[in-house]
Design a binder for these strands. Structure first.
Lengths: 256, 256
DNA sequence: CGCTGCGTTGACTTTTGTCAAGATTGGTGG
DNA sequence: CCACCAATCTTGACAAAAGTCAACGCAGCG
């Protein structure tokens, strides 16, 4: 049985030129000439096998990265050897910014699946940005969006209920998948329960139970890494602590 | 009894021209002429009373900010009315970047103490950066450092032991205070236990108990918001899960 | 000098982590 | 094509940690 996700559309939208333009040049007008100039800079579609490392702590800032195919995680390993997941990076999302502050990478980027990565040499990028104001704007905006994702992550992590964190995680994934032109309501998780747990600051068993609970409540359907969101509204409620202990999916909180 | 922190040195380093230059122009060579140009752009030392709001969600991106005096917090209020603290911003640390991604602020910035804020109009900043490469570099670097702080925050939040989070919080504060030329080993917290709790994703009682525990263990000395770090090495150990249940400060983990 | 807001501490409850045992899944090689 | 293996996921029982509720202490302020 082969992967049944409808990839046709998504695959098209992720051709490299579409990708580079799609994320760096969205609203602003960058003409064809400029585009060509940018395209020339981008080192295209470097392949990386699942589990492969793109960069590690201490590596000098060389490039920023966008996967055109496949997803990544960025992790740090604490003194005690615990792995903390700082972020998941879906196709089309810029990452590698962790080296911009100090000139060196602070974490390790690992492919969650076989992947193709577009590499954007940082020096070239800033060089071009200097005499291409619209690109400078876009670069800043994209960096800002990356910071927004970090803030979302922090916001999730400050929730004290495991159920809320898990629901928010799924909801966030749904939004991001939709944004990159994929189905947000039915998808394959690129990461393991353990990785989700390390991203959410929970034990992996707690994540597993959380998924089961949402399934029992009729909010989602899970088979391993395959997830379908059945009731987005209920998911939203679960994410807002609207727990209510009940098993009925559609029942609103009795109080109120 | 008046505030006994030795502020002389720190106060000097935070004069506005020193501030603007100190953080935007650190290593790169920016000549006096360029400096003057920058200085002209920075709107200086706007005063804000404790509890005052600098911007709120939905506000258009106008400026980036640096406090020359006083500290800030950035918060989001969740659907249920819970306040989550996304960051604390010490004097000399750039904030306000949460609007760069979307053009609108996503959180609220509130003064923790009476404060003086330097305002850096964003449009002007990028304008100047476009024909001043060294400033562009610095701007990116400073933005990167801000992202680094967010990553540190995430890293703290993914720890599952409250004691570790609290120790890491104090250690991070120590480092940041030192970096801005203040005493890292004896300081006054600008925020309440409740705010620390909302930053760390804990109950305020847990934070209070964590402080008491560190004090009992001889690691720190606390009187309300006044903190003295007695044993940095023990603090580091506490931050790395080196808990050992014991009460003796210097005793290493018995195993090992 | 008594408020009032913050911080601390204790007793108890709830949630989550831990340990351990199965169940599934996916991949590999016979 | 099937069987087996390893990795991953799920579930249960129990222990530990953190949250909640509540009372008290303390300091700064009017």
């Amino acid at each position: 049985m082969r992967d049944p996700i409808p990839l046709d559309l998504a695959r098209l939208r992720r051709s490299c030129s579409e990708c580079a333009l799609g994320f760096l040049c969205l609203p602003a007008g960058v003409d064809a000439e400029d585009m060509a100039r940018l395209d020339a800079v981008v080192r295209k579609r470097r392949p990386l096998a699942r589990g492969g490392t793109l960069y590690r702590p201490g590596d000098a800032l060389r490039s920023l990265y966008v996967a055109s195919e496949g997803s990544f995680k960025t992790v740090v390993v604490s003194a005690e050897g615990e792995e903390h997941v700082l972020g998941f990076h879906l196709p089309g999302e810029l990452f590698g910014l962790d080296a911009v502050g100090s000139g060196q990478h602070r974490c390790q980027a690992i492919a969650l699946t076989d992947a193709l990565v577009c590499e954007l040499p940082f020096a070239r990028l800033t060089e071009i940005a200097a005499d291409l104001p619209s690109l400078q704007q876009q670069l800043l905006r994209v960096i800002g969006q990356s910071a927004d994702r970090d803030h979302d992550h922090v916001d999730v992590l400050t929730r004290r209920q495991a159920g809320e964190r898990i629901a928010l995680f799924l909801q966030g994934l749904r939004e991001r998948l939709t944004r990159i032109g994929r189905h947000g309501d039915e998808f394959q998780l690129p990461m393991s329960r353990d990785e989700i747990a390390r991203y959410l600051g929970l034990a992996l068993e707690t994540v597993s139970r959380g998924f089961s609970r949402l399934q029992d409540d009729g909010v989602i359907e899970v088979h391993g890494r395959r997830v379908r969101i059945l009731d987005p509204e209920a998911l939203r409620r679960a994410a807002s602590g609207g727990d209510c202990q009940g098993s009925s999916a559609t029942r609103a909180c009795d109080r109120a």
